[in-house]
Structure formats: structure tokens, C-alpha cells
């Protein structure tokens, strides 16, 4: 299939491993799905300390289950990326460990306090869910298929995050103040989740043309703000003055770009922010500490495989 035919046929769940797809499509799809899978892993890495921090038994269980879900999503997504035939999962995990693998901006900021957990579990996951829902119609069928399960579980995560936010904002005055402070720190990052407006990124255009991306960043950001500004206010959070957000006549919101720190955003996109180093290196160290187990598993597999071969020969 040539690229023109791909663009002509591009529609929801149109292409699968049975199709002979051009390298350009495979590369774009791999890049996008690998980014998504990496983000699941790094999100889980960011949240894992809060399994321990959770202030009730039920919440601890929920936090452990959420982190586990994210790892499960990573597993599904790496499989969907592998099915494009360009990279193996181990290669992608190694790229993530050595700092080549890219992932969502919000997961480059280390978290220190429990009051920050809803910033991820409610706002960032809520934002991610908007994007993911559109990806059920992506053109790479294994990716769309993975999204069915991911979206289903993300629904629970957002409820979990919302419940924590509700708890904090109906808690003591101190809890409310701490949560508001955390919100002010996280709010610009959350808005940047969708990237700069009128994104001129070359990847974006192509990904839309071949049906990998289903909705632009601007539309997604607007939809998110429409839904989440009222929710934040409902829980008693005050929307910070900056970045300025203008309400249009049609009720939609628009962000004043220049109020956001795009140098920081692009430093993060290069994995070069202080927090990026901290998160990536921390996870790399954890991955390397169990290298020995994977070596043992490989030896085990080689042995099993060897003996199967021999049996077949017999």
C-alpha cells in the first residue's frame, strides 16, 4: 500500500497487521503509541509513592489498583506498538530508561504531597481521557482496541481522583488551603498537557491525514476546559489569574498563550527538565536493579526453547 492509498482509506480501525503498510505510517504510529505507553509507565512511576501515603485502607487499595491498571495499559499499548513491526517492547523500555523515550509533560514533575494526587488522578487523567476517547477511532486497529479497555478503566481513575479532591476540599481548612496551593502549581501544567495552540508540529498534520489522530489539540483543550473549569469551581478551587482564560461568546474558553512557560514545556519535551532527569533516572535505576532477574528469565527461556527444539528433532 502506498501513502496515498493510506490517506484515502484512513478511517476508524481501518488498518491491522494484515495490511502491508508503508514505513512512514508505521513510524508515525509507533512514535505515537510508544509515547502513550511510556506515559502510562511514567504516570505509574509518579504515583507509586502515594500507595504508601494513602490515609485509609480503602484508599490504599484503590491507589495500588490504579498504579497496577496503568502498568497494564502500558503492557497493552507496547503490544499495540510492537504490532507495527518496528520496535520490540524491550527496546522501547530501554529507550525510556536511557532518556530517549518521550512521555507526557505532567509526568516530569515529581510529586511531594498527597494533596497533589487529584491533580494527576482527576485533572490530568480527565484530560487524558478526552484524548483517549477519540483514539477509539484511530486507524491502527490494535491501538483502538487497546483504547477500549484503557478508557473503561480510566473512568474509574477519574472517579477516584474526584473523590480524593472532594475529600480534601470538604476537609479541614488546612487541607483545603494545601489543595488550592497544589492546584495553582499544577494548573498551568495541566493546560499545557494539550500542547501549544495552533500547533504547527509536522507530526500532527500527518498523523491526522492517516487517521491516527482524530481530534486536534485545540479542540481537545477547549472541550477539557469547558468540562473541568466548572468542576474545579464546584469543589471550591479558585482558578488562578494566570494563565488568563477568556470566555468566548459561545461559552467556550480560550487560553492566553503567552502566560504559559513554553521554554519549560519544550525543555520537558526534550527530557531535559530537572524533574525529567529525576523521574527518568529513578525509574532507570529500578529497572537496572532487576536486570539480573531478566537475565535468569532469558537463560530459562533459552534452555526451554533449546530442549523443545531437540524434542522436535527427536
Amino acid at each position: 500500500m502506498d501513502i496515498e492509498e493510506v490517506k484515502r482509506r484512513a478511517g476508524p480501525r481501518e488498518f491491522s497487521p494484515k495490511d502491508d503498510l508503508p514505513e512512514e505510517y508505521r513510524k508515525a504510529a509507533t512514535r505515537m503509541i510508544q509515547f502513550h505507553a511510556n506515559s502510562e509507565i511514567m504516570g505509574a512511576y509518579l504515583e507509586r509513592p502515594f500507595i504508601r501515603e494513602a490515609p485509609s485502607l480503602d484508599r490504599k487499595l484503590a491507589c495500588s489498583a490504579k498504579v497496577q491498571d496503568e502498568i497494564g495499559h502500558g503492557q497493552l499499548l507496547y503490544r499495540a506498538a510492537e504490532s507495527l513491526g518496528l520496535k520490540t517492547r524491550d527496546e522501547m523500555l530501554d529507550e525510556l530508561a536511557n532518556g530517549e523515550g518521550k512521555f507526557l509533560n505532567c509526568f516530569h514533575y515529581p510529586m511531594e504531597s498527597w494533596v497533589e494526587t487529584p491533580m494527576i488522578a482527576f485533572f490530568v487523567d480527565g484530560a487524558a481521557m478526552r484524548r483517549q476517547a477519540t483514539l477509539k477511532r484511530t486507524s491502527w486497529e490494535p491501538y483502538a482496541h487497546a483504547m477500549d479497555k484503557v478508557c473503561f478503566e480510566e473512568g474509574f481513575h477519574v472517579k477516584h481522583g474526584e473523590a480524593i479532591l472532594h475529600e480534601l476540599m470538604t476537609g479541614s481548612k488546612k487541607e483545603q488551603e494545601m489543595t488550592q496551593e497544589a492546584f495553582e502549581v499544577w494548573w498551568p501544567r495541566i493546560i499545557q498537557f494539550f500542547g501549544p495552540t495552533n500547533d504547527k508540529s509536522t507530526h500532527h498534520g500527518f498523523a491526522s491525514e492517516v487517521g491516527l489522530k482524530q481530534m486536534g489539540n485545540d479542540e481537545l483543550r477547549t472541550a477539557f476546559l469547558n468540562a473541568y473549569i466548572p468542576k474545579a469551581e464546584k469543589y471550591g478551587l479558585e482558578i488562578p489569574d494566570e494563565p488568563r482564560i477568556r470566555k468566548n461568546d459561545d461559552g467556550t474558553y480560550e487560553v492566553v498563550e503567552e502566560d504559559l512557560d513554553w521554554d519549560e514545556f519544550f525543555t520537558i519535551a526534550k527530557n531535559d527538565y530537572d524533574g525529567s532527569h529525576q523521574q527518568i533516572n529513578g525509574r532507570q535505576k529500578a529497572q537496572e536493579a532487576v536486570d539480573w532477574v531478566r537475565e535468569v528469565l532469558d537463560e530459562h527461556e533459552a534452555r526451554e526453547f533449546g530442549s523443545t527444539q531437540q524434542q522436535a528433532a527427536d
Binding site: A44, R52, Q68, I71, V293, R294
Partner: peptide, 22 residues
């Protein structure tokens, strides 16, 4: 056990130990 979450040798073993912890 939860200390092994996002630190286990493989994604599969990560999921399994998380199950046991829960």
C-alpha cells in the same frame, strides 16, 4: 509488596505482585 509496583523485573510480574498485595 507494594514497593515492587513499577519496580518489578517485567510488566507481567509487576501486575502479578500488585494483585497479591491487593
Amino acid at each position: 509488596y507494594t514497593e515492587w509496583q513499577v519496580r518489578s523485573p517485567t510488566l507481567e510480574s509487576d501486575l502479578a505482585l500488585a494483585n497479591i498485595a491487593q
